[in-house]
Design a protein around this nucleic acid. Sequence first.
DNA 1: TCGGTCACG
DNA 2: ACGTACGTGACCGAC
Length: 860
Amino acid sequence: MMKLLVLDGNSILNRAFYGIKLLTTKDGHFTNAIYGFLTMLKKMWDETQPDAVAIAFDRREPTFRHLEYDGYKAQRKGMPEELAEQMPVLKELLELLGYPLVEQAGFEADDILGTLAKASREQGAECVIATGDRDSLQLVGDGVTVRLAATKFGQPQVTVYDAEKIREEYGVEPPQMIEIKALQGDSSDNIPGVAGIGPKGAGELIRSFHDIDHIYENLDTIDIKEGMRKKLREGKESAYLSRKLGTICTDVPIDTKLETYRLQSGDKAAAARLMARLELFSLIPKLGLDAAAQETPEQSKTADSLPVKVLADGAGLLIPLQEQGRADLTAVYDGNEISSLLLPMDGTVFVLKPEKAFLRALCGNAKIVKNIHNSKPFYAALERLGVEVKNFGMDTLLAAYLLNPTSSDYGVERLAAEYEVPVPSANGEYADAARAALLPALVDRLTTEIEQNGQLDLLKKIELPLAKVLAGMETVGFAVDAAGIEEYGKGLQTRIDEIQSRIYEQVGYEFNVNSPKQLGQALFEKLGLHTGKKTKSGYSTNAEVLESLRYDHPAVEMILEYRGLTKLKSTYCDGLLKVIGPDGRIHSSFNQTETRTGRISSTEPNLQNIPVRTEQGRELRRFFIARPGWVLVDADYSQIELRVLAHVADDKNMIEAFRENADIHRSTAAQVFRMPEEMVTPIMRSRAKAVNFGIVYGIGAFSLSKNIGVTRKEADDYIKAYLAHYDGVRSYMNHVVELAKERGYAETLFGRRRYLPELTSSNFNLRSFGERVAMNMPIQGTAADIIKIAMIRVAERLTREKMQAQLILQVHDELIVEAPQEEAEAAAKLLTEEMQNAVSLSVPMLAEAKIGKTWYDAKE
DNA sequence: TCGGTCACG
DNA sequence: ACGTACGTGACCGAC
């Protein structure tokens, strides 16, 4: 028997849009509904395995009803711009994929579903209706089932309705669904129903009396409450109108020959290209378009398999590589060692196990430009062998990051799709070889893009050399005193046990204090404390809430201490002990393509968030040490972000303050509170400091007031006073947002970009967020650029001056060098100089270095 | 896997 | 009228 799948295009698109968080391409086109629609379509297809498929869309002609004010507004509200723009793109994509679309002027998708369901039944075929609306349930019957689509947690979900399921859920036969609706109405569809009757009442009436005809024919005699009888009597006209409005039409003038709806061949390659343009890369393999995605429009569909040659020795490659002038390297690692190297040349991928001599010859040959995807591990491997790289050309990973730092996937295959790199073959056997074969074209393509963006300097002078510095830092690592951490942890544990039992005593029963859920029950249900904020899943128990309850019950303070102690114990003591290497050092990974602002991040472990703000936490830094006979030199920038702000905003007053090396928070306080600096109290200074921070983050009066505990009005006055005095900052903030809106991205002094599709959103919150980011990213990002330059200069100079000292850590505005005792002073001087001279701005960049045996001592 | 929490700049 | 400061990563419990 033939099986036809009919999709209600509009309703599924709607469900997808509201069920999946807004996704955009990096240039700001919304794609979440398209993504959701296709995953739903795929699921429906897989589950039903139909022989034919029709996708129905509304094509409502403007009618008088739509021109009425209310109707117009409802219409607009029902279809936000973010969704509307996805509709035509989805239709194009569906056509390219070969799905027959059905529309008929003046009819809704529902009516098309009804017409095709009826046609199927008449032709003895099976019909599966896929929709997000329950309206279509009235169509269920012989050979017709409805699959109700929903999107929960971003995942497609389907509930199957046959006649049995409807009887079970509603207690009526499918055709009676329309009788229920006649009484109940449907506000979203402008169906009035009977006033005062809801789903429950409507269901009961229809279950008892079958349909509205029977109800109204016997209205005076049927056994119902008098109130109900009155409502029904008054709503009679409305009920009949509702039934008429809600009845799905089954005779839309469309083609009802089911053969028409067989899947067509479409243009798979074009569909794959469109999906790549929409940056919906994960869908390409899901929809089985991998092969199509690899066809360029000109290419034939019969790609040869990729020739791969395994070589015992690479020596023979050196001459041809030199003639070619480039080596596009794909390395495979075993630990830190390069276990094989893949080199595409003239359509063949050569695979070899690289001996040190070969690597030295290749990397040392200045006539061969070396390109690679992800240079950091390559540098780490070469460093172990003592091999230097001359003439390094391109790292496609870093280039792709500069082109769009918001992406979360910089895999070669995905980049090849995004940047429409021709794929040399469809060979899927050797994934590494296939990737290697993509590299040359990707290198060329990304080089062009980077040049077009004016980011070549940023790439070549900052990111590429930084990768080598980071490789060095990872390799060297940071020495720690494991026994010290262990003992410190034991002390914490003793105290944790003690407090835990006291908390149990106070609350009256034992529970998991680490569980926000159980803790919420204990505090707010058992102890009856006032609930503060709520979270999605219950009461909020964060430090801010607990702080406000501190004096309401003795348990609260204990819980605060418990939280602090367990954090130190589990994240820092236990966490750090787990990652100490056999050399007694911690080798964190420094990720260069993770943040959207250009900062680096640190993982496994994160060494950029080791406690410092409280003394108890700061103690941990005593266990971060220099090796015997060596010391740590720790240098940090003073107010780097505010100095950057003074420069980029070209704010005369702020520039002057920094040139005079003023205490910037004090000087801000003097301005905001309009008084001489000598009269600024510590409270005023700390408030001014919060204002300075707020400015950098894209300030709002509400958050500032919350942060410093003043009224919103006061906070607003502070901001006004601030902007009045720092007029350059005011105009900069306005300008930078406008510029970002115009260009679609924010950028740093060095041309690092962050695309901000949020700025075009019609959603107030999202757009406001975009505006704050447009203000913050150039500041945070420029500061990140500056310290990266400093790192490169520090590392180069340490090498040039043949010092043993090495850079081991960066914490955003702080650099740590491990140096032999006798190099300490020289290293401190070098660090300060290179940090201060990394860039020349309209304000001095001040950095200060300190020396100590431990991180604690070097940062006092 | 996600949300809540909290550590850092 | 909206909901409310930027950027990270790790751990835990709950689902």
